[in-house]
């Protein structure tokens, strides 16, 4: 099939019935990214944006798009990578990050669990009596991304979550009955604590498949590997279900996200804590006396 401009299509956008050539496709991805930012006011002139990068497709595409947006918009851009200490995975993805930052001339900072907390994720998972690797990794990574981006002077922390990631989380929370998590992720964030750097997700309306194709067309080298600790079985099931639905009923993922977005202000109002205090051990924002990260670290120290 041909694109409406007459060139051969490289992609069929099933949910809108459009056949797109290379040029129209890459423009459409940039437009979606730009519109998400504009409509939700995610970036303002003069912002200092720290982009969390993992070496995977999502974060490197995000870095490229942000870099491209800088031509139209005046803001600062820095890349931040977190080395969790996952042998055979993260050590192999870091060269992709270095290359992308060098190509785009973006400053890169790398922080590690080992340096910051004293243990690699591989070491943490060697203890007896532990929870899942993703629980430690999620808590530590969120904490370190926030703290490091704040120290780098960030006004926003940009993350590469795509439409598939977002729609999976919405459905997972719903199926698990995890109501308290609703209202945490959305198009905007209330500034609950001066030590929290607001997180923005400019790719949340772009399907994962389009991100892979965009990376290929723009010659963005990325790591194809999947984290060895990853796929939680539950997320895998939800992902398969959403993919089957999307195949039968194109637009399912987007509709799910948009429905959630409509409900988000109510959830956010209802579920956001009134007050966030500070962890007595590390001084980072926390809803209880000690933050989750410090609780986990304490447990690891006792069991390592």
């Amino acid at each position: 099939m041909n694109c409406k401009c007459g060139h051969k299509a490289v992609y069929f956008k099933r949910y809108s019935g459009q056949h797109l050539c290379e040029r129209c496709f890459t423009r459409a991805v940039f437009k979606k990214f730009k519109d998400t930012i504009r409509v939700n006011g995610l970036i303002e002139r003069g912002d200092a944006i720290v982009c969390g990068v993992s070496g995977g497709k999502d974060s490197l595409v995000l870095l490229h798009l942000l870099h491209q947006l800088q031509e139209k918009f005046n803001f600062n851009l820095i890349a931040l990578a977190i080395d969790e200490g996952i042998k055979g995975y993260r050590d192999e993805s870091i060269p992709f990050i270095r290359k992308a930052c060098k190509d785009l001339d973006v400053d890169l900072y790398i922080d590690s669990f080992k340096e910051k907390y004293g243990y690699t994720l591989d070491e943490i998972t060697s203890i007896k009596d532990r929870v899942g690797a993703c629980s430690y990794c999620g808590v530590f990574r969120r904490n370190l991304l926030n703290q490091s981006s704040r120290e780098l002077g960030a006004t926003k922390l940009a993350l590469g979550h795509n439409l598939d990631d977002e729609s999976q989380v919405i459905l997972m929370n719903l199926l698990r009955g995890d109501f308290s998590r609703f209202g945490r992720t959305g198009t905007y964030y209330k500034n609950l604590h001066p030590k929290f750097v607001p997180r923005i997700k400019p790719l949340r309306e772009i399907p994962e498949k389009e991100i892979v194709l965009y990376a290929y067309l723009m010659n963005i080298d990325f790591d194809f590997e999947e984290c060895p600790y990853a796929p939680e079985a539950f997320r895998g099931d939800v992902r398969n279900f959403l993919n089957e639905m999307e195949e039968k009923r194109p637009g399912t993922k987007y509709t799910l996200l948009k429905t959630y977005d409509k409900m988000f202000p109510t959830f956010n109002e209802m579920l956001t804590p009134e007050h966030i205090s500070t962890c007595e051990t590390c001084g980072e924002p926390s809803i209880s006396t000690f933050c989750k990260k410090c609780e986990m670290l304490d447990h690891i120290k006792k069991n390592y």
């Binding site: 051969k8 490289v10 056949h19 498949k209 194709l213 993919n243």
Partner: peptide, 16 residues
Amino acid sequence: SIETAVVIKNDVPVEE
């Protein structure tokens, strides 16, 4: 499946 793969034919991405 069409949702889980991007296909490149003779070095050019193609529709399903």
